[in-house]
């Protein structure tokens, strides 16, 4: 789980150098925060019944991780080590309050569906984990990139799980009907939605299967 690479970025380096791009793309696959590092599952799965709240949640988490990483990286030399957890919690919860207020103002329906899970971004292990493992030892820009990358990696899993759950559970994607309504038994067809898949436990089983597929494809990440 430790991924404490300290990167000495010189100030002349371009914004999207190869090293920074790697920070952005690594968490999408090889070191995905959810499936490989086992972070941030807490608030992840409950929002994956439909695609839309999952995408909104992914964007919110990405914004919070990126900005909080950048802020903590700016503050890293001025905070005494002993009180850093409290400072992190304050910074993160301020950002989450902002996100929550923005969602309430511009996407009220989705914000209602996400209910307590927006607030739970505060204790999402990805946020604290990336601050501890990366932002406290690196400069602001790479930290920001790392945060965005990890947020996107988390979002990728969320979208993958919610894609299958909405498609199989309701026959729709983003609220649009994919399975034609004439296929359903009620309309004389042969198809029926899988009611099991929208229940909470199936999210866990789907995620287990995603991890299985990912680990069997990349040999080096298989570990207990």
């Amino acid at each position: 789980m430790s991924k404490e690479e300290t990167i000495n970025v010189t100030s002349k380096e371009p914004l999207f150098s190869a090293k920074n791009l790697k920070l952005l793309t690594d968490p999408l696959g090889r070191s995905n925060p959810v499936t490989v590092l086992v972070l941030g599952i807490c608030s992840a799965l409950a929002v994956t019944v439909k695609l839309e709240p999952a995408v909104v949640m992914a964007i919110s988490v990405t914004a919070v991780v990126g900005v909080s990483n950048a802020i903590m990286s700016l503050l890293r030399n001025t905070i005494p080590n002993r009180i850093r957890i409290i400072v992190q919690l304050v910074v993160v919860s301020l950002l989450v309050i902002l996100v929550d207020q923005v969602l309430r103002a511009f996407a009220y329906d989705v914000s209602k569906q996400l209910s307590v899970f927006v607030g739970l971004i505060i204790t999402n292990c990805i946020v604290m984990g990336r601050i501890e493992a990366f932002a406290l030892g690196n400069r602001p820009w790479p930290s920001f990139i790392d945060g965005i990358g990890n947020g996107l990696g988390y979002g990728l899993i969320l979208v993958a799980v919610s894609f299958f759950r909405e498609l199989l559970g309701a026959g729709t994607l983003w609220g649009y009907r994919i399975v034609p309504s004439s296929f359903y038994i009620a309309n004389g067809g042969v198809y029926e939605n899988n009611g099991l898949i929208i229940l909470p436990p199936m999210a866990l089983i789907l995620l287990g299967i995603i991890i299985w597929i990912q680990r069997s494809r990349s040999k080096n990440t298989a570990k207990s």
Binding site: V38, G208, I211, W212, I213, R215, S216, A222, S224
Partner: peptide
């Protein structure tokens, strides 16, 4: 199965 061990 090896890839499923642990987390999966």
């Amino acid at each position: 199965p090896a890839p499923l061990q642990g987390l999966g």
